[in-house]
Design a protein around this nucleic acid. Structure first.
Lengths: 220, 220
DNA sequence: AGATTATTGGACACCATTGTCCAAACGGTC
DNA sequence: GACCGTTTGGACAATGGTGTCCAATAATCT
């Protein structure tokens, strides 16, 4: 683009340490997410990674294998993020509504409006028919695991008397749905949302959720 | 595919009445939804529509204009479907929960799991960056309009004393989110769902919604 | 330094696709 | 039957992409 091919790339390299593989993985992720599998071109990925096209073929052999490697990597990262997020779920909250709202806001930030997560979700949905097993892997490690572990968290809260929940799995799915209510379709094209909007949305979702699942005042 | 090129196509035609334009529009819709804009080929569309490639260029001139025409058509249909659906919202229900559940099930069938609707949604999300104005049009006539008119329906129910709702727009978004909770990600690859599953999901969503928005028993 | 390995750029064959042009065949209409 | 607009198939150039081969070059290891 800016003609940095002729300057014999002095600032590019320090090659060897970070191994170009990472650069390829990163660039390929961006290009694939932007243009899809069919629309992405190896040449563009190579140039965006500051790497020769041949290097890509040396390491991955194939456009399809490169794609799968990229997706596997992204799914893995995303699952890790999700794990650390769920670990912050309140266990013995002093102010249930406030702490649940904080958690919901964190969830929105890292699982709904987050750039990487949204790109990955869009990508998977886009290519779900071409790579079904990939879709299944994502479902298990992403939304599926989120719902499952969240259900366990909610069940603990219910067991401690904070909530009244018959079906924790259902409640978890509904919690996730409510929390994502305001951003479902919108974060696909414009992913940066003001912090206040996120907090307001989280608060509204938690308020409704609690109205549905808080134990009745006079009941046991 | 099956060699019907040499049989001088006797069963194909009765041309003139349905004007090949419709066949092209239909086939193009399917191919575009399946393969996306970049992945779809004019040749495939032509052959799937039983039409010469040149005919497509005669009518639409361009792949991009064909794409836009197809999308406009699909958005229009989808909006019409949505309109007739919302018209069935219960106004003075005898059994609120039952009638709301029926409505929710209809909504799932025609707006969440419906093949055409799901394909369109996927398509729009996929190409949102390439055709932003299209995305905006869809948002206004699709989810946006759904939330708006549903909010009016809910406000009427609240005004009649069936529900207690502070913010009808928010309630509408949450209703839609709850109703779609079980199918959000799943209907993108396998859209046919058993009727019982739809009914159960609708019932669960409405139950939670009503627990959150039903007037308190002893309160005004 | 010498050997080994990764990387590079460039040329190449191959293929699919877009969009154009055109002459021939075909559809109704008068 | 003659006329006019549409449709058709096929040929065509141009483009852009994939994947391969290879010789030269740079980095790393011993």
């Amino acid at each position: 683009m800016d003609g940095d091919k002729e300057v014999k790339r002095p600032p590019l390299g320090s090659r060897g340490q970070c191994s170009k593989v990472l650069a390829v993985l990163k660039a390929a992720g961006e290009v694939f997410c932007r243009d899809g599998f069919a629309g992405a071109s190896i040449d563009l990925i190579a140039s965006e990674a500051g790497v020769s096209r041949q290097t890509i073929y040396n390491h991955y052999g194939d456009k399809e294998r490169l794609f799968l490697a990229v997706l596997r990597d992204m799914i893995e990262r995303s699952a890790a993020d999700l794990f650390t997020l769920i670990a912050t779920f309140p266990e013995r909250p002093r102010d249930l509504e406030a702490e649940l709202t904080d958690f919901a806001a964190r969830y929105i930030r890292s699982c709904v409006c987050n750039r990487r997560t949204a790109s990955l979700r869009k990508m998977i949905q886009r290519e779900a028919e071409r790579f079904p097993e990939l879709f299944a892997t994502w479902r298990e490690n992403g939304p599926g695991k989120a719902a499952g572990t969240l259900a366990a968290c909610l069940a603990r809260l219910a067991h401690s008397g904070y909530l009244h929940i018959d079906d924790p799995d259902l409640a978890a799915r509904q919690f996730i749905a409510l929390v994502g209510a305001d951003f479902q379709g919108s974060c696909l094209v414009d992913e940066s949302r003001p912090e206040e909007e996120i907090r307001a949305s989280a608060a509204a979702a938690v308020r409704t959720f609690l109205r549905a699942f808080i134990p009745a005042e006079g009941a046991g």
